[in-house]
Design a protein around this nucleic acid. Structure first.
Length: 566
RNA sequence: GGCGCGUUGGUCAAUCGGCUAAGACGCCUCCCUUUCACGGAGGAAUGACGGGUUCGACUCCCGUACGCGCUACCA
């Protein structure tokens, strides 16, 4: 894929990266576009190269524009991430804009949820509804007044028209024209003349309907036979026949714009330079290109990038919240309770994911840096991210791999980075932490055994609280009086030991075992079960050292009692 | 149905015309470990199909198949 950006600029540089990427210039190329073009062909023999305009460089501005209809899903967060990485790498701004033009779908709390998700991930916007900015307001519902004039301008220019069809009439149209070959007839250039609109009705009738206050929408008038081209940063050249695209509604009867009008107007007004969105938007891209052309000029249009979809792990198709419920993994970033249905959905955060891992995992779903590196900090991602290494095809989500990333991050990060989070989780599980220094030591000792933050409840809990249940079944089959005696004597010896150090405890243990003629290995497991409740955890003497003499002895005695009862 | 986009192991993926096709997750075997993990060594497993172009194709071109997306006064 080779892409050349055409523009009247007098200086270019050449690099391996797509225009808009930072890239290291391979050569400065002063001269006219055509002169450089000729030289580029020489250079391009062995490499894919791109031309970058040097002057007239606008500051990069990208936006994430969700509609606040519920929890933020994986794909949404990845779109945020790619926006953020691109912007920060370019020294640009990342803007959060809320697309709430559909009032019937408004969900209270959804916007706050989005803001909080971005905060959790460390992907904070430079401008947003909450913090404001030079292009406020950032909620489309609050910009309502502005859209009408653009829609009317399109009508005046002959690029759009008023349509008075009622919902019933639209439904009738679809039913009447539906055939086996064409199951979903479109409101397009062919049908336009058969419907009730300013094209079919004429000026006078239209004026009258308008004057009477008849509800209307404004639809784009798609040209009959044109090819609309689009250079996508990921897919390269994409083209559409306008005859295949319908006359999309731009302004709704309630005066609100549809997405198709609002994206264009707001991207223009907010001076957005690069627009990233999911691949599902590609089919409506020609509408947006045309609105740009008619309203603000295609040369001012942001560069588009249609991101590949995140697919469900089994079968094919877009990953949905339902798939997570069905397969047992989160899909939303954080907990979400739908205020209308009261339906609760667990998020990655509450499931025990670190934001570092969550972000890392999303970054490499559809992108990689070409090396073998898989673990990236946000800063590294900002440095290494490049749009030309984003995949075209969708990627199936793999929860096992997601967990692996979390495990790696638990190992990689200093304990201090997540100690407060773990403390919180432990306390929620009714395990109180009085000694933070002790908690640090414990976490250091058990972190390799945890995949999710919630795993610390099992792995660290017994250091602070006597196990509620003891897996005596793991001891009993091989239990006998000799072993009973061993432990009685061990208690006595441990009561007398002054050091309470790892090596000393082990030495005492082995000496007594030898005296009783029992292999230490046969006693290690029982001791472990006595101290932690089950067959898991770090070295037994490490545990004994940390929980202290009193707890160690108390737990041994407790289990001895349990064994006798049975 | 139409239109658009995609297609390398089970999954994520490298490859930019020289391939004996990396690496990771998962799976299996072994080592380390008197538990569970971590770690280490190894193994099974991949270019949808058919045509071109080329000395040479996973890589470029064209078809076919399959998958997905869109086809609302939703985004």
């Amino acid at each position: 894929m080779r892409t050349i950006i055409e523009c009247e600029i007098d200086c270019f540089f050449v690099s391996r990266h797509f225009p808009g990427q930072r890239g290291v210039p391979l050569a400065q190329q002063p001269g006219s576009f055509n002169e450089i073009h000729a030289r580029l062909f020489e250079l391009q023999r062995n490499e894919r190269l791109f031309l970058h305009p040097m002057s007239n460089a606008k500051k990069v501005r990208v936006r994430f524009a969700p509609s606040p209809t519920g929890g933020l899903h994986l794909g949404g967060v990845r779109t945020v991430l790619f926006n953020y990485l691109f912007a920060k790498q370019q020294g640009g701004d990342f803007i959060l804009r809320i697309e709430d033009t559909d009032q019937s779908r408004f969900v209270p709390g959804a916007e706050e949820y989005i803001t909080e998700t971005l905060r959790w991930c460390g992907l904070n916007p430079d401008e947003s509804p909450a913090q404001g900015g030079p292009f406020a307001p950032y909620r489309q519902s609050e910009r309502k007044a502005g859209y009408l004039q653009y829609a009317e301008q399109l009508v005046q220019q002959g690029n759009a028209y008023y349509a008075f069809d009622t919902p019933q009439e639209l439904e009738d149209m679809r039913n009447n024209y539906k055939t086996a070959e064409n199951p979903s007839p479109q409101y397009n250039h062919a049908l336009r003349s058969k419907m009730r609109n300013s094209v079919s009705l004429g000026e006078e009738a239209t004026r009258e309907l308008l004057a009477n206050g008849t509800p209307y929408v404004i639809r784009i008038k798609m040209p009959e036979n044109e090819t609309v081209h689009l250079t996508d940063m990921i897919r390269g050249e994409v083209s559409f026949q306008t005859s295949q695209v319908d006359d999309k509604v731009l302004l709704k009867a309630d005066g609100m714009p549809t997405y198709h009008l609002a994206v264009v107007v707001d991207d223009y007004l907010m001076q957005i330079t690069h627009a990233f969105r999911g691949e599902e938007w590609l089919p409506s891209a020609p509408v947006h290109v045309l609105v740009w052309r008619y309203l603000f000029g295609e040369e001012n249009m942001p560069q588009w990038a249609h991101l590949p979809l995140i697919l469900k792990p089994d079968g094919n198709g877009k990953l949905s919240k339902r798939d997570g419920d069905r397969l047992g993994f989160p899909v939303f970033a954080m907990n979400w309770t739908d205020p209308r249905s009261n339906e609760f959905t667990q998020g990655f955060r509450e499931r025990g994911f670190l934001p570092e891992a969550f972000v890392n995992m999303l970054a490499v779903l559809g992108w990689n840096d070409g090396s073998e590196q898989e673990l990236f900090t946000l800063d590294e991602l900002v440095q290494k991210f490049s749009m030309d290494r984003v995949h075209k095809g969708g990627a199936k989500f793999n929860y096992e791999k997601a967990k692996w990333f979390n495990q790696e991050w638990i190992k990689k990060l200093p304990v201090a980075a997540y100690q407060p989070l773990v403390k919180d989780i432990l306390q929620q599980a009714d395990i109180n932490i009085a000694d933070d220094a002790l908690l640090t030591k414990v976490l250091e000792l058990v972190k390799d055994r945890c995949t999710l933050l919630t795993d610390f409840v099992q792995q660290a809990g017994f250091f602070f609280k006597q196990p509620e249940t003891i897996d005596t079944a793991a001891i009993k089959p091989k239990w006998d009086d000799k072993k009973q005696l061993f432990f009685v004597e061990l208690i006595r010896a441990y009561e007398l030991d002054a050091s309470w150090e790892h090596d000393e405890l082990e030495k005492i243990f082995k000496e007594i075992a030898a005296a009783h003629q029992i292999k230490p290995g046969d006693l290690m497991m029982p001791l472990r079960v006595m101290l932690v409740g089950g067959k898991f955890g770090p070295g037994v003497f490490d545990i004994a050292v940390l929980i202290g003499r009193d707890n160690t002895i108390r737990r041994i005695k407790h289990t001895l009692q349990l064994l006798q009862q049975a």
